[in-house]
Simulated scan of single mutants.
Amino acid sequence: MAVNQGYELPCGRDLDALWDRLDSVDEHEATCPHCGTARESLLALREATAELVAEPDPVPPGLVGRIMSAVRAEARRGQMLDLPTPEPGRVEVSEAAVAVVLRYAADSAGDVRARRCRVRTVGVASDGGGIVEVELTLAVRLGNVAGAETLARVRERVTAAAAARVGLTLAKLDLLVEDVYEDGE
């Protein structure tokens, strides 16, 4: 099994070759400090990996549902939105791609997880870009006592991402809290 292709130790030995002979040391490797240090690290890596394989963490509740929700959202491209361009021509992006950017912006606010994001075109801005309405459903961390501040942070980040990362103007942003989650979920 190759660990890293083409990584040469300071002594000139290849790290892949050292990994392949991890259980049998030749004369050079037995005395070389570079090979010895690398070998110790590789043995620790192999041991840690074996421990992880032997005792896998249980699957967090709801993980499969969250993954499938994201897969279904990605599979539906949705309508295309026009983006502003500095030169004549046309650039389009799918509503689903915009939704991914906006969900990521919401997740970065902390104490929330974006769920569904619906983007709907409602007009065209003077720069040729789209004007959209967004409905974003969220799960809030259990114990979040600063709910209003958290939602204000989400609103700020989503609005900024729509303008700066995508080039769209938000006419309306509805934030719907539909669930709570515990740390570690």
Rank of each mutant, 00 (worst) to 15 (best):
L81Y: 02
N144W: 02
D23L: 06
T137K: 08
L43T: 10
A164W: 00
M1E: 11
G130Q: 06
G130I: 01
P61C: 03
S24Q: 14
D107G: 11
E8W: 08
G147P: 06
G167S: 06
R153W: 02
C32I: 00
R76C: 07
A48R: 14
V53Y: 02
V180P: 00
R153E: 13
V112G: 06
L136T: 07
V166I: 10
T121F: 06
D16A: 05
V180L: 14
N144C: 15
D183T: 11
P61R: 05
E8N: 10
P88G: 07
R66T: 04
V119F: 04
N144V: 10
S94D: 05
V180G: 03
R118N: 08
V93Q: 05
L9S: 03
L138S: 06
P61K: 04
S108D: 14
R103C: 14
P56G: 03
A30H: 02
G123N: 13
C117W: 02
R103S: 12
P33A: 03
L18K: 01
L151V: 07
R120T: 15
G110T: 10
A50T: 12
V25P: 03
L52G: 14
I131P: 07
L142E: 15
A44G: 12
R103M: 09
A162R: 04
V98I: 10
V25D: 02
A73R: 04
R118I: 07
A164P: 05
V158L: 01
M1Q: 12
R66Q: 09
A146T: 10
G78P: 00
Q5Y: 08
R39N: 04
A164L: 12
A2N: 12
P86V: 07
E133Y: 01
N144F: 00
L45H: 10
E185H: 10
L176D: 15
R72W: 02
E55Y: 07
R165S: 11
P33C: 01
R157Y: 03
L18E: 02
R90M: 11
Y104T: 11
D82R: 15
A162N: 05
H34W: 07
R103I: 09
R76A: 11
A160L: 12
A163D: 07
A162M: 01
D57V: 09
R76G: 03
R116H: 15
L102Y: 07
Y104H: 13
Y104D: 14
L83C: 07
E8Y: 07
R46Y: 00
Y181N: 09
A44I: 06
R155G: 06
R165C: 06
P58I: 05
E29I: 04
E87G: 10
Y181P: 12
L138V: 09
G123F: 09
L9K: 01
C117L: 12
P56R: 04
L63M: 09
W19F: 04
A162Q: 00
D14F: 02
L42C: 10
D174Q: 11
V180S: 07
D183F: 06
C117H: 04
L176V: 15
V177N: 03
T49A: 15
S69R: 14
T31E: 14
L18I: 09
Q5H: 13
L15Y: 03
R165T: 01
R90V: 15
L18R: 01
K172S: 09
V25G: 01
L175V: 07
R153G: 09
T85K: 06
P58E: 08
D179C: 05
P61N: 04
L173F: 00
A50R: 15
S94Y: 00
L18D: 00
